[in-house]
Simulated scan of single mutants.
Amino acid sequence: MSIIERYILRNCALAFLVGLGLLTSVIWISQALREVDLVASKGQTLAIFFIITGLTIPSLVAIIAPLALFAAILYTLNKLNADSELIVMSAAGLSQWRLLRPFAVVSLVVLILVAWMSIWAMPSSFRGIRDMLSKVRADFVTFLVREGQFVPLTNGIVFHYRERGPNGSLLGIFIQDRSDPEVINTYIAESGSTVEVDGRNFLTLSKAFVQRQTRNDKDPAMVSFESYALDLAQFTAKEDGIILKPRERSTLDLIKLDPKAADIYTQTYFGRYRAELHDRFSGPLYVLSFAMIAFLALGQARTTRQGRGTAIAAAIIAVLAIRLAGFSASALFQRSAWAIVLVYGIPLGAFALATFLAFRRSGARVPAPRPVVRRHQVIQGTAQ
Protein backbone atom coordinates (compact mmCIF):
# COMPACT_ATOMS: atom_id res chain seq x y z
CA MET A 1 0.00 0.00 0.00
CA SER A 2 1.41 3.36 -1.07
CA ILE A 3 1.86 6.45 1.09
CA ILE A 4 -1.24 8.04 -0.43
CA GLU A 5 -3.35 4.99 0.34
CA ARG A 6 -2.06 4.84 3.91
CA TYR A 7 -2.87 8.53 4.29
CA ILE A 8 -6.46 7.98 3.12
CA LEU A 9 -6.78 4.87 5.26
CA ARG A 10 -5.65 6.72 8.39
CA ASN A 11 -8.07 9.61 7.83
CA CYS A 12 -11.03 7.31 7.13
CA ALA A 13 -10.34 5.01 10.09
CA LEU A 14 -9.97 7.94 12.47
CA ALA A 15 -13.21 9.54 11.22
CA PHE A 16 -15.02 6.22 11.63
CA LEU A 17 -13.83 5.68 15.20
CA VAL A 18 -14.78 9.22 16.22
CA GLY A 19 -18.19 8.98 14.57
CA LEU A 20 -18.90 5.54 16.02
CA GLY A 21 -17.88 6.65 19.49
CA LEU A 22 -19.96 9.82 19.44
CA LEU A 23 -23.09 8.24 17.98
CA THR A 24 -22.91 5.23 20.29
CA SER A 25 -22.39 7.43 23.34
CA VAL A 26 -25.33 9.70 22.54
CA ILE A 27 -27.75 6.85 21.87
CA TRP A 28 -26.46 4.85 24.86
CA ILE A 29 -27.07 7.80 27.18
CA SER A 30 -30.62 8.16 25.88
CA GLN A 31 -31.18 4.43 26.44
CA ALA A 32 -29.56 4.50 29.88
CA LEU A 33 -31.82 7.30 31.09
CA ARG A 34 -34.77 4.94 30.65
CA GLU A 35 -33.19 2.52 33.14
CA VAL A 36 -32.68 5.06 35.92
CA ASP A 37 -35.65 3.37 37.58
CA LEU A 38 -33.28 0.53 38.49
CA VAL A 39 -31.46 2.84 40.88
CA ALA A 40 -34.25 5.23 41.84
CA SER A 41 -37.12 2.89 42.68
CA LYS A 42 -35.66 -0.60 42.76
CA GLY A 43 -32.68 0.22 44.90
CA GLN A 44 -30.03 -1.34 42.67
CA THR A 45 -26.42 -0.26 42.77
CA LEU A 46 -24.70 1.79 40.07
CA ALA A 47 -22.70 -1.30 39.14
CA ILE A 48 -25.88 -3.20 38.23
CA PHE A 49 -27.14 -0.13 36.36
CA PHE A 50 -23.99 0.16 34.23
CA ILE A 51 -23.82 -3.58 33.60
CA ILE A 52 -27.39 -3.77 32.29
CA THR A 53 -27.14 -0.61 30.19
CA GLY A 54 -23.66 -1.57 28.98
CA LEU A 55 -25.01 -4.85 27.62
CA THR A 56 -27.03 -2.84 25.08
CA ILE A 57 -23.87 -1.52 23.40
CA PRO A 58 -23.39 -4.50 21.00
CA SER A 59 -26.86 -3.98 19.53
CA LEU A 60 -26.15 -0.26 19.14
CA VAL A 61 -22.81 -0.87 17.43
CA ALA A 62 -24.36 -3.37 15.01
CA ILE A 63 -26.79 -0.70 13.82
CA ILE A 64 -24.60 2.40 14.07
CA ALA A 65 -21.35 1.06 12.58
CA PRO A 66 -22.54 0.95 8.93
CA LEU A 67 -23.88 4.50 9.23
CA ALA A 68 -20.68 5.68 10.93
CA LEU A 69 -18.62 4.17 8.09
CA PHE A 70 -20.84 5.86 5.52
CA ALA A 71 -20.33 9.22 7.23
CA ALA A 72 -16.58 8.63 7.58
CA ILE A 73 -16.13 7.92 3.86
CA LEU A 74 -18.17 10.97 2.92
CA TYR A 75 -16.14 13.12 5.29
CA THR A 76 -12.79 11.80 4.03
CA LEU A 77 -13.61 12.20 0.34
CA ASN A 78 -15.14 15.62 0.87
CA LYS A 79 -12.04 16.75 2.77
CA LEU A 80 -9.72 15.41 0.07
CA ASN A 81 -11.72 17.18 -2.60
CA ALA A 82 -12.01 20.45 -0.67
CA ASP A 83 -8.22 20.56 -0.24
CA SER A 84 -7.76 19.78 -3.96
CA GLU A 85 -5.88 16.61 -2.99
CA LEU A 86 -8.28 14.38 -4.89
CA ILE A 87 -7.81 16.42 -8.08
CA VAL A 88 -4.04 16.17 -7.78
CA MET A 89 -4.23 12.41 -7.19
CA SER A 90 -6.44 11.95 -10.24
CA ALA A 91 -4.15 14.12 -12.38
CA ALA A 92 -1.18 12.05 -11.21
CA GLY A 93 -2.86 8.92 -12.55
CA LEU A 94 -4.40 7.46 -9.38
CA SER A 95 -7.09 5.05 -10.59
CA GLN A 96 -10.46 4.54 -9.00
CA TRP A 97 -9.41 1.06 -7.87
CA ARG A 98 -6.41 2.41 -5.97
CA LEU A 99 -8.51 5.19 -4.49
CA LEU A 100 -11.07 2.62 -3.35
CA ARG A 101 -8.50 0.29 -1.79
CA PRO A 102 -8.06 2.05 1.60
CA PHE A 103 -11.82 2.47 1.95
CA ALA A 104 -12.25 -1.22 1.12
CA VAL A 105 -9.81 -2.17 3.90
CA VAL A 106 -11.73 -0.12 6.47
CA SER A 107 -15.03 -1.50 5.18
CA LEU A 108 -13.77 -5.07 5.54
CA VAL A 109 -12.76 -4.46 9.16
CA VAL A 110 -16.14 -2.87 9.92
CA LEU A 111 -17.89 -5.76 8.17
CA ILE A 112 -16.12 -8.26 10.45
CA LEU A 113 -16.96 -6.13 13.50
CA VAL A 114 -20.66 -5.89 12.63
CA ALA A 115 -20.84 -9.61 11.78
CA TRP A 116 -19.31 -10.51 15.15
CA MET A 117 -21.69 -8.20 16.97
CA SER A 118 -24.76 -9.50 15.10
CA ILE A 119 -23.98 -13.21 15.18
CA TRP A 120 -22.50 -13.64 18.66
CA ALA A 121 -22.20 -10.54 20.87
CA MET A 122 -25.72 -9.15 20.42
CA PRO A 123 -27.67 -12.34 21.31
CA SER A 124 -25.31 -12.97 24.23
CA SER A 125 -25.87 -9.44 25.55
CA PHE A 126 -29.66 -9.73 25.31
CA ARG A 127 -29.51 -13.03 27.16
CA GLY A 128 -27.34 -11.36 29.81
CA ILE A 129 -29.86 -8.52 30.19
CA ARG A 130 -32.64 -11.07 30.69
CA ASP A 131 -30.66 -12.90 33.38
CA MET A 132 -29.74 -9.67 35.17
CA LEU A 133 -33.33 -8.40 35.21
CA SER A 134 -34.49 -11.77 36.51
CA LYS A 135 -32.07 -11.47 39.41
CA VAL A 136 -33.24 -7.93 40.09
CA ARG A 137 -36.85 -9.06 40.23
CA ALA A 138 -35.96 -12.06 42.38
CA ASP A 139 -34.05 -9.81 44.78
CA PHE A 140 -36.98 -7.48 45.32
CA VAL A 141 -37.28 -8.38 49.04
CA THR A 142 -33.87 -6.90 49.78
CA PHE A 143 -34.08 -3.81 47.58
CA LEU A 144 -37.70 -2.96 46.75
CA VAL A 145 -39.62 -3.57 49.95
CA ARG A 146 -39.12 -0.78 52.52
CA GLU A 147 -39.00 -1.34 56.22
CA GLY A 148 -42.13 -0.55 58.22
CA GLN A 149 -44.38 -0.57 55.14
CA PHE A 150 -47.05 -3.02 54.00
CA VAL A 151 -46.20 -3.42 50.34
CA PRO A 152 -48.69 -5.14 47.99
CA LEU A 153 -46.87 -7.37 45.51
CA THR A 154 -48.11 -9.37 42.55
CA ASN A 155 -50.72 -12.11 42.78
CA GLY A 156 -52.41 -10.72 45.89
CA ILE A 157 -49.38 -10.95 48.19
CA VAL A 158 -48.66 -8.37 50.91
CA PHE A 159 -45.16 -8.16 52.39
CA HIS A 160 -43.99 -6.33 55.53
CA TYR A 161 -40.95 -6.31 57.79
CA ARG A 162 -40.27 -4.16 60.82
CA GLU A 163 -36.61 -3.29 60.34
CA ARG A 164 -33.27 -4.51 59.07
CA GLY A 165 -30.83 -6.36 61.26
CA PRO A 166 -27.13 -5.50 61.56
CA ASN A 167 -26.11 -8.25 59.11
CA GLY A 168 -28.70 -7.29 56.47
CA SER A 169 -31.35 -9.71 57.70
CA LEU A 170 -35.03 -8.74 57.93
CA LEU A 171 -36.68 -8.57 61.37
CA GLY A 172 -40.38 -8.83 62.18
CA ILE A 173 -41.60 -10.36 58.92
CA PHE A 174 -45.27 -10.57 57.95
CA ILE A 175 -46.45 -12.07 54.65
CA GLN A 176 -50.02 -12.69 53.56
CA ASP A 177 -50.58 -14.75 50.44
CA ARG A 178 -54.00 -14.50 48.74
CA SER A 179 -52.84 -15.73 45.33
CA ASP A 180 -55.16 -18.75 45.68
CA PRO A 181 -58.76 -17.53 46.20
CA GLU A 182 -59.59 -20.74 48.09
CA VAL A 183 -56.71 -20.54 50.59
CA ILE A 184 -55.16 -17.70 52.58
CA ASN A 185 -51.63 -18.31 53.87
CA THR A 186 -50.11 -15.98 56.46
CA TYR A 187 -46.42 -16.14 57.44
CA ILE A 188 -45.05 -14.52 60.58
CA ALA A 189 -41.36 -14.79 61.54
CA GLU A 190 -38.93 -13.13 63.89
CA SER A 191 -36.26 -12.81 61.21
CA GLY A 192 -35.35 -13.88 57.72
CA SER A 193 -32.70 -13.62 55.04
CA THR A 194 -32.40 -14.35 51.31
CA VAL A 195 -30.27 -17.22 50.04
CA GLU A 196 -29.61 -18.62 46.56
CA VAL A 197 -29.70 -22.37 45.93
CA ASP A 198 -29.08 -23.80 42.45
CA GLY A 199 -29.88 -20.47 40.82
CA ARG A 200 -33.15 -20.05 42.71
CA ASN A 201 -33.74 -17.43 45.40
CA PHE A 202 -35.36 -18.32 48.73
CA LEU A 203 -36.40 -16.36 51.79
CA THR A 204 -35.40 -18.34 54.89
CA LEU A 205 -37.67 -17.57 57.86
CA SER A 206 -36.44 -18.22 61.41
CA LYS A 207 -38.86 -18.97 64.28
CA ALA A 208 -41.81 -18.76 61.93
CA PHE A 209 -45.53 -19.39 62.21
CA VAL A 210 -47.60 -20.35 59.18
CA GLN A 211 -51.37 -19.88 59.36
CA ARG A 212 -53.48 -21.58 56.72
CA GLN A 213 -57.18 -20.86 56.28
CA THR A 214 -59.51 -22.14 53.61
CA ARG A 215 -62.77 -20.53 52.57
CA ASN A 216 -64.91 -23.23 54.22
CA ASP A 217 -62.91 -23.50 57.44
CA LYS A 218 -63.76 -21.04 60.20
CA ASP A 219 -60.82 -22.04 62.39
CA PRO A 220 -57.43 -21.57 60.69
CA ALA A 221 -54.64 -24.11 61.13
CA MET A 222 -51.37 -22.81 62.52
CA VAL A 223 -47.99 -24.53 62.40
CA SER A 224 -44.75 -23.28 63.92
CA PHE A 225 -41.32 -23.85 62.37
CA GLU A 226 -37.85 -23.23 63.62
CA SER A 227 -36.82 -22.58 60.01
CA TYR A 228 -38.99 -22.25 56.91
CA ALA A 229 -37.97 -21.51 53.29
CA LEU A 230 -40.14 -19.62 50.82
CA ASP A 231 -39.46 -19.62 47.07
CA LEU A 232 -39.30 -15.97 46.01
CA ALA A 233 -40.42 -16.87 42.49
CA GLN A 234 -44.02 -16.96 43.71
CA PHE A 235 -43.75 -13.30 44.78
CA THR A 236 -42.75 -12.03 41.33
CA ALA A 237 -44.76 -11.54 38.17
CA LYS A 238 -45.14 -14.63 36.08
CA GLU A 239 -42.99 -14.60 32.96
CA ASP A 240 -43.28 -16.59 29.79
CA GLY A 241 -41.51 -19.57 31.36
CA ILE A 242 -38.18 -20.50 29.87
CA ILE A 243 -39.20 -19.36 26.38
CA LEU A 244 -36.50 -17.17 24.91
CA LYS A 245 -37.34 -14.36 22.53
CA PRO A 246 -35.79 -14.46 19.05
CA ARG A 247 -33.08 -11.90 19.87
CA GLU A 248 -32.14 -13.81 23.05
CA ARG A 249 -31.41 -17.08 21.27
CA SER A 250 -27.92 -17.84 20.03
CA THR A 251 -27.34 -18.07 16.30
CA LEU A 252 -26.64 -21.79 16.55
CA ASP A 253 -29.96 -22.33 18.36
CA LEU A 254 -31.80 -20.46 15.62
CA ILE A 255 -30.11 -22.57 12.93
CA LYS A 256 -31.06 -25.81 14.69
CA LEU A 257 -34.58 -24.63 15.55
CA ASP A 258 -37.22 -27.07 14.31
CA PRO A 259 -40.74 -25.62 14.30
CA LYS A 260 -42.30 -29.09 14.52
CA ALA A 261 -40.44 -29.96 17.73
CA ALA A 262 -40.68 -26.49 19.31
CA ASP A 263 -43.13 -25.23 21.92
CA ILE A 264 -46.45 -23.60 21.07
CA TYR A 265 -45.08 -20.06 21.34
CA THR A 266 -42.20 -20.77 18.96
CA GLN A 267 -44.49 -22.51 16.49
CA THR A 268 -46.91 -19.59 16.56
CA TYR A 269 -44.23 -16.94 16.04
CA PHE A 270 -41.74 -19.03 14.07
CA GLY A 271 -41.54 -16.30 11.42
CA ARG A 272 -39.92 -13.97 13.96
CA TYR A 273 -37.23 -16.51 14.77
CA ARG A 274 -36.62 -17.11 11.07
CA ALA A 275 -36.36 -13.39 10.34
CA GLU A 276 -34.02 -12.85 13.30
CA LEU A 277 -31.61 -15.50 12.01
CA HIS A 278 -31.36 -14.04 8.52
CA ASP A 279 -31.20 -10.46 9.82
CA ARG A 280 -28.00 -11.41 11.64
CA PHE A 281 -26.43 -12.58 8.38
CA SER A 282 -27.81 -9.88 6.10
CA GLY A 283 -27.16 -6.95 8.47
CA PRO A 284 -23.37 -6.85 7.87
CA LEU A 285 -23.97 -6.62 4.11
CA TYR A 286 -25.21 -3.06 4.54
CA VAL A 287 -21.65 -2.10 5.43
CA LEU A 288 -20.61 -2.81 1.84
CA SER A 289 -23.59 -1.10 0.23
CA PHE A 290 -23.32 2.05 2.38
CA ALA A 291 -19.58 2.32 1.77
CA MET A 292 -19.96 2.01 -1.98
CA ILE A 293 -22.80 4.55 -2.08
CA ALA A 294 -20.56 7.06 -0.28
CA PHE A 295 -17.74 6.33 -2.73
CA LEU A 296 -20.12 6.74 -5.67
CA ALA A 297 -21.23 10.14 -4.39
CA LEU A 298 -17.81 11.75 -3.86
CA GLY A 299 -15.24 9.35 -5.29
CA GLN A 300 -14.78 11.41 -8.45
CA ALA A 301 -12.56 14.48 -8.39
CA ARG A 302 -14.57 17.71 -8.63
CA THR A 303 -13.60 21.32 -9.09
CA THR A 304 -14.62 24.00 -6.62
CA ARG A 305 -17.37 25.12 -9.01
CA GLN A 306 -19.00 21.70 -8.95
CA GLY A 307 -21.23 21.53 -5.89
CA ARG A 308 -20.99 18.47 -3.67
CA GLY A 309 -24.07 19.18 -1.58
CA THR A 310 -26.45 17.57 -4.07
CA ALA A 311 -24.35 14.40 -4.24
CA ILE A 312 -24.15 14.14 -0.43
CA ALA A 313 -27.90 14.69 -0.05
CA ALA A 314 -28.65 12.06 -2.70
CA ALA A 315 -26.35 9.57 -0.95
CA ILE A 316 -28.02 10.15 2.43
CA ILE A 317 -31.49 9.71 0.92
CA ALA A 318 -30.37 6.51 -0.84
CA VAL A 319 -28.92 5.05 2.38
CA LEU A 320 -32.06 5.82 4.38
CA ALA A 321 -34.29 4.38 1.67
CA ILE A 322 -32.24 1.19 1.43
CA ARG A 323 -32.23 0.66 5.20
CA LEU A 324 -35.97 1.25 5.48
CA ALA A 325 -36.50 -1.18 2.61
CA GLY A 326 -34.40 -3.72 4.52
CA PHE A 327 -36.55 -3.36 7.63
CA SER A 328 -39.68 -3.75 5.51
CA ALA A 329 -38.27 -6.87 3.86
CA SER A 330 -37.50 -8.37 7.27
CA ALA A 331 -41.05 -7.70 8.46
CA LEU A 332 -42.45 -9.24 5.27
CA PHE A 333 -40.17 -12.26 5.69
CA GLN A 334 -41.83 -13.02 9.03
CA ARG A 335 -45.04 -13.78 7.13
CA SER A 336 -43.81 -14.93 3.73
CA ALA A 337 -40.79 -17.15 3.16
CA TRP A 338 -40.23 -15.89 -0.38
CA ALA A 339 -39.20 -12.48 1.01
CA ILE A 340 -35.78 -13.96 1.84
CA VAL A 341 -34.86 -12.82 -1.68
CA LEU A 342 -35.46 -9.23 -0.61
CA VAL A 343 -33.66 -9.64 2.73
CA TYR A 344 -30.38 -10.40 0.95
CA GLY A 345 -31.17 -8.86 -2.41
CA ILE A 346 -31.62 -5.28 -1.16
CA PRO A 347 -28.12 -4.80 0.35
CA LEU A 348 -26.37 -6.88 -2.31
CA GLY A 349 -28.27 -5.22 -5.15
CA ALA A 350 -27.48 -1.75 -3.80
CA PHE A 351 -23.79 -2.68 -3.53
CA ALA A 352 -23.67 -4.09 -7.06
CA LEU A 353 -25.46 -1.09 -8.59
CA ALA A 354 -23.29 1.45 -6.75
CA THR A 355 -20.13 -0.41 -7.80
CA PHE A 356 -21.23 -0.49 -11.43
CA LEU A 357 -22.05 3.22 -11.50
CA ALA A 358 -18.84 4.19 -9.70
CA PHE A 359 -16.54 2.43 -12.14
CA ARG A 360 -18.59 3.15 -15.21
CA ARG A 361 -17.25 6.69 -15.04
CA SER A 362 -13.75 5.63 -13.96
CA GLY A 363 -12.41 6.47 -17.42
CA ALA A 364 -12.85 10.18 -16.77
CA ARG A 365 -9.48 11.80 -16.09
CA VAL A 366 -8.27 15.27 -15.40
CA PRO A 367 -6.68 16.39 -18.69
CA ALA A 368 -2.92 16.31 -18.68
CA PRO A 369 -1.04 19.57 -19.37
CA ARG A 370 0.80 18.12 -22.40
CA PRO A 371 -1.42 19.70 -25.10
CA VAL A 372 -1.00 23.10 -23.42
CA VAL A 373 2.80 22.75 -23.56
CA ARG A 374 2.76 21.84 -27.25
CA ARG A 375 0.59 24.84 -28.04
CA HIS A 376 2.99 27.10 -26.15
CA GLN A 377 5.91 25.68 -28.10
CA VAL A 378 4.14 26.27 -31.39
CA ILE A 379 3.40 29.89 -30.50
CA GLN A 380 7.01 30.49 -29.51
CA GLY A 381 8.25 28.97 -32.80
CA THR A 382 5.95 31.20 -34.80
CA ALA A 383 7.11 34.28 -32.97
CA GLN A 384 10.73 33.52 -33.77
Rank of each mutant, 00 (worst) to 15 (best):
K218F: 12
L252P: 00
Q211T: 15
R249Y: 01
S282G: 14
L288T: 03
E226S: 14
F270K: 02
P259Y: 07
I243F: 09
E239M: 11
R274G: 12
Y273M: 11
Q213R: 13
L285N: 04
G283H: 11
F209A: 15
G283E: 10
K238D: 15
V210Q: 08
Y265T: 11
R247S: 13
D279T: 09
A221F: 04
H278Q: 11
S206H: 07
Y228G: 08
Y286Q: 08
T204W: 02
E226Y: 05
L252H: 02
D253T: 10
Y265N: 08
S289Q: 07
R215L: 15
G271I: 07
E239D: 13
D231W: 10
P284K: 05
V223W: 00
L205P: 00
T204Q: 10
A275P: 03
Q267M: 10
T204K: 07
A262C: 13
I264D: 13
L254T: 02
D231V: 07
V287H: 01
K207A: 10
A237I: 07
P246G: 13
E248D: 10
S250W: 02
F235K: 01
Y228L: 15
S282P: 08
D231A: 15
V223K: 02
S289D: 05
A233G: 05
Y228C: 09
L277N: 04
R272E: 14
L254A: 08
D253H: 03
K256D: 11
L230W: 03
A208C: 09
R215C: 06
M222A: 13
N216I: 09
Q213I: 08
A233N: 06
D231Q: 11
F235Y: 07
D263S: 14
L257I: 05
S289Y: 08
R280F: 09
M222R: 12
S250M: 06
P259E: 11
F281D: 04
G271A: 13
G283N: 15
L252K: 04
T266H: 05
F209K: 11
A229G: 03
Q213K: 12
G283C: 14
A229I: 01
P259Q: 10
D258P: 01
V287M: 02
P246T: 13
F281G: 01
I255G: 06
L203V: 05
I243C: 00
Y269T: 04
A233D: 09
M222K: 05
V210W: 02
E276P: 03
I264H: 03
K260D: 14
A261F: 01
G241A: 15
D263T: 12
F270W: 03
K256P: 00
A208R: 05
Q267L: 06
D253N: 12
Y269K: 04
G271K: 11
D231C: 10
S224P: 01
